[in-house]
């Protein structure tokens, strides 16, 4: 009995559910005759679904090949975001329109996530895993709720999900690819030359200066790449772990999340983060292309300084 529950409420089961959702998206895309280019995205999301469902049993080199296939499809321009034909599907009739109850499904997701994490912890299991399993079952609960509230069919539910997913496009798998890049960076010992370069630049074995170097390199790399998620694996391997976590025994969770969020100061200051800093200029019809960045500059610098002080104090005083 416990074994069955353990299988149903496992991360593996949630991966299978997510994979099935992705395969549904793919089938609906291919079945959509009005789609301007249906086979590219259909293949892309189907392959991702296969990796989700069978990733744990497939030989890793096969999964690696599947990743290459997905990236090649995207690189060949077959999976552009926003291609999903949004034909403004028949708006639901007034009669069945739920009022503020429409918030319920969306709020159910974090509530179930949290409940699972608490339950896992109470049972002496990993609360991290509990949150992820809860995210999966929270989403299922939200699907059931929204179907009940709106009287829609499961097919309509999946069709809407597919539309939103295609609208966001292949960037959706970017964080996962970046985490994988981190694994290869670690194996290639990319951190060593970066760490030794910084040690050469910093005059002494000084905690405060290392914290400054860590925050500065994270911010600068984020500005160059336009994306703090892309910068994090590099800085983690090259600066954070070898120069701060290892020698000073710093709390890895605390300094790592602060390193990611100090990167956001860089995002606020760079035109490379077009989605956040240039798109609103166009959306709002602003005169100056860098108007948003200029407005964010003092905030970004002030919060950067707060990050440095916070990180230093945590390493120094929190044990």
């Amino acid at each position: 009995m416990a074994g069955v529950a353990g299988t149903i409420f496992s991360l593996g089961a949630v991966y299978v559910i997510a994979g099935l959702v992705l395969v549904c998206f793919a089938i609906l895309t291919v079945a959509d005759r009005r789609h301007p280019r249906r086979w590219g995205p259909g293949a892309f999301w189907c392959v991702l679904g296969i990796v989700f469902i069978f990733g744990s049993v497939l030989p890793h080199w096969v999964s690696g090949l599947l990743v290459i296939v997905m990236v090649a499809l995207d690189g060949a321009g077959q999976v552009r975001a926003g291609l999903a034909a949004d034909r403004g599907a028949a708006r639901p009739h007034g009669a069945s329109r739920p009022g503020n109850q429409i918030f319920l499904p969306v709020v159910a997701i974090p509530m179930v996530t949290f409940a699972f994490a608490l339950t896992f912890r109470a049972l002496g299991m990993d609360a991290n895993r509990g949150a992820l399993v809860g995210l999966g079952y929270g989403s299922l609960a939200a699907m059931a709720l929204v179907l009940r509230l709106t009287g829609s069919t499961p097919r309509e539910l999946m069709a809407e999900g597919r539309r939103l997913n295609e609208l966001m496009g292949p960037v959706n798998i970017l964080p996962q690819l970046l985490a994988s890049l981190g694994v290869i960076f670690t194996a290639a010992r990319l951190g060593d030359p970066i760490a030794s370069g910084i040690v050469r630049l910093v005059p002494a074995d000084h905690l405060f200066l290392f914290v400054v170097a860590n925050c500065l390199s994270m911010t600068v790399l984020t500005m160059v790449l336009g994306n703090s998620f892309a910068a994090f694996p590099v800085i983690a391997a090259g600066v954070l772990v070898p120069l701060i976590i290892q020698p000073f025994g710093a709390d890895p969770a605390a300094v790592a999340i602060l390193t990611l969020s100090v990167g956001a100061s860089g995002t606020l200051m760079t035109p490379m983060a077009a989605n956040f800093n240039l798109v609103p200029v166009a959306l709002l019809g602003m005169k100056s292309e860098y108007g948003v960045i200029r407005a964010q500059l003092p905030f970004a610098v002030a919060l950067w300084t707060i990050h440095v002080v916070l990180m230093w104090s945590i390493i120094r005083f929190v044990r």
């Binding site: 559910i17 497939l58 992820l132 999966g136 996962q176």
Partner: peptide
């Protein structure tokens, strides 16, 4: 690459929330 991508599937798990949010 395959191992890393499979082991990091949890990073993209938010896709499972999309149907409910979109509807």
């Amino acid at each position: 690459l395959g191992r890393a991508f499979v082991e990091n599937r949890f990073v993209s798990l938010f896709i499972i929330t999309l149907p409910a949010i979109a509807l």
